[in-house]
């Protein structure tokens, strides 16, 4: 089944920072604010408001590390003072960004969170493809990861080859044929196949920036670059030597 990228957005740290002043984001994590900033931009590309699809909107969030900042904060405070802070706990779940975005966008259809280390982004696109085959006509797919400064000393052991993750989020709006007709604007990027290579001899350019769900950023960048600038397949080499290859094509 062909799925289409009908909207794409990358997080902007300035916008994510500005959301701190929004009362709705008072309790939001950095992941949530970055994800929301990417989703805002992706939704702006649609020809109709998401609410037009009613319950046939899916949301799939991909995150490798999950909510490290509130997790570290919770454990640090618990260790130092023996006090458990409920807000830090409820914000520590990998599902936090999905729950928050579903609330913010009033999504009542399928909402789920995927975490598969460096294949989190690829998996989320796969899960969205499954949901677009019967459960939904349009899917908001978000990749987000942050790594708090308090844990930076651990980075070399997590990413021994010199990779250093950036804090970032990317969103793509995927649609089936029905969704594309309803929400698309002209030409769209088709996502055809995603292959994972578990070998350690993988080819492909090492990304200059990296976060574990970055397959979504790669698709978002391709969709934003336009037909003339989009290569296929999109090959990503991961820090552990594995890689993925995503076949795409443009359709007018």
């Amino acid at each position: 089944m062909t799925i289409w990228v009908v909207g794409a957005g990358l997080s902007e740290s300035t916008r994510a920072e500005a959301l701190r002043d929004d009362p709705d984001f008072r309790r939001a994590t950095t992941n949530v604010r970055l994800a929301a900033s990417a989703v805002e931009k992706a939704l702006a590309a649609l020809a109709a408001p998401l609410s037009d699809a009613g319950s046939r909107v899916a949301l799939v969030v991909a995150t490798g590390h999950g909510e490290l900042e509130p997790t570290a904060g919770f454990l640090q405070e618990l260790g130092r003072t023996n006090v458990a802070r409920p807000l830090l706990f409820q914000n520590s779940l990998h599902n936090t960004a999905a729950g928050f975005l579903a609330l913010r966008l009033a999504l009542v259809g399928p909402v789920t969170t995927v975490s598969d280390a460096m294949f989190s982004g690829e998996d989320a696109v796969d899960v969205a493809r499954t949901l677009l085959d019967g459960d939904a006509d349009i899917a908001v797919v978000v990749g987000v990861d942050t790594f708090p400064a308090v844990l930076s000393e651990l980075l070399p052991s997590l990413y021994p080859d010199g990779f250093r993750p950036v804090d970032g989020a990317a969103a793509i709006i995927l649609a089936n044929e029905v969704g594309r007709r309803q929400f698309g604007r002209g030409a769209a990027l088709a996502v055809e196949t995603i292959e994972r290579n578990f070998g350690t001899d993988s080819a492909g350019e090492t990304p200059s920036q990296f976060f574990d769900a970055d397959a979504i950023a790669v698709l978002a960048q391709a969709a934003l670059a336009g037909a003339a600038s989009t290569a296929s397949p999109l090959v990503r080499r991961k820090p552990d030597g594995t890689s993925s290859s995503t076949t795409v094509r443009w359709d007018a």
Partner: peptide, 23 residues
């Protein structure tokens, strides 16, 4: 989370479709 699936892949020699849901 991710390492749990990575280890299961390793122990079962599995390279097929897989993921972790954490909803």
């Amino acid at each position: 989370l991710g390492v749990t699936l990575a280890v299961l892949r390793e122990l079962y020699g599995f390279r097929g479709r897989a993921t972790i849901l954490s909803t």
